[in-house]
Write a protein that binds this DNA or RNA. Structure first.
Lengths: 219, 219
DNA sequence: CCGTATCCAATAAGATACTG
DNA sequence: CAGTATCTTATTGGATACGG
């Protein structure tokens, strides 16, 4: 099977970057990977998380990514018996690189921060924008309840762990939509504007760990 | 000025990665940045280095990148008086991230390593694929004379520096085209198949510093 | 030679409707 | 819900021609 058949147009360039673009350079592809980087998702999860992608483009992207060994299609065991899409181990290795690219781009004067974000995006942004030096000896576990699922962030031993699902024991539980988190994480908005159950002091400390890199002047 | 006017289609997603795609997600854009990441280049340099890009598309990409503050157009002082395109400082910060993406992609079973590479691509690949642990206390300077320009690689103090132009004092001078370097750098081909003037022992040691990450099995 | 502009054909993306 | 099918629009690439 020739590469062009799989990737559409070839750059005919042996440079790894050119091949990266053949793998994930098509529109939406990196965002699909982003949505898969915390765990498997269903077709409709992806559609809901990617504002504006159309069903036919998502179908095609998932098929492309599967052919390129970045995504695997799995059917969950009964009684669920639903099909999910899962990033391969190798695809997950690209995730921190894509996050770094996102952090780089967030300095752009053209960056429109008022757009909505998905649950996965805001959780990944914590991993990307945490200031390790501010962690110190802080430890705590935050649970996040979004309309489309539960996530957690656990700080321990100077590290931040992000995951899907209900954490073992949460110090505080935030019920919100992802957009409401943005101003508190990155806009200096007061933590109290969030719906938080549990230890609000832990929550306050937790939210103080994050900051965006400096914006370039818009001129 | 609205973002959509600058970027074409918007993802309407506040995630930094989505914005990165709005900035450099269009076809050829990252490869144009790659070509600019070791210094300013002329239009025709870019055309020559990017196999298959049409003048048409290159003009548009350069204009897009300029509007997004990733590229600046400069006119060199007389007597040259020619126009060159230069990556902004911020754009250069994306370079290591794009290199990391290239290294990640190079593990793909679909990666076609027989395609040609540009001079800048092969020089950047050294920065990307050098094994720091192998440097040890080795020091040496290699000059590379390609048809379209001179480059150098200097190893010193456990670090590798890549640059454009003639180095101060080279231990060895390699005259080749970029494709001929590939098998020696990454394919275990003998250094002696290259046209090398100067200290061949330094050259041999130098070329032994590089290796690609392991390929995934093609199944 | 250095780009730009224009025209055309091939692809890719988007919107919408539809099927199991 | 999980996709297909179909149609329309946008983007890309290639060729060619044009001005500095």
């Amino acid at each position: 099977m020739e590469l062009e058949k799989i990737t559409g147009r070839s750059y005919a360039d042996a440079c790894g970057l050119a091949h990266a673009l053949e793998l994930i350079g098509e529109r939406w592809a990196p965002l699909v990977l982003r949505e898969l980087s915390l765990g498997p998702r269903r077709f409709s999860d992806l559609r809901a998380a990617l504002p504006g992608i159309s069903a036919n483009v998502l179908t095609q992207r998932l098929g492309d990514l599967e052919a390129r060994r970045l995504v695997e299609r799995r059917t969950l065991p009964p009684p669920a018996s639903v099909q999910v899409y899962q990033a391969t181990e190798w695809a997950l290795e690209a995730s921190p690189i894509l996050c770094a690219l996102g952090r780089w781009a967030s300095r752009s004067p053209l960056h429109e921060r008022t757009h909505p974000v998905s649950a996965v995006a805001i959780m990944l942004s914590m991993r990307t924008n945490v200031d390790m030096e501010r962690i110190g000896d802080f430890a705590g576990t935050m649970a996040f309840r979004f309309a489309d699922g539960d996530y957690f962030a656990r700080v321990r031993d100077g590290k931040l762990e992000i995951g899907v699902g209900e954490p073992a024991q949460a110090d505080a539980v935030v019920t919100a939509n992802p957009n409401e988190l943005k101003p508190v994480l990155y806009g200096g908005a007061p933590v109290d504007q969030l719906d938080i159950a549990g230890d609000r002091a832990v929550a306050r400390r937790f939210f103080s760990l994050f900051s965006l890199p400096p914006s370039l002047s818009a001129d």
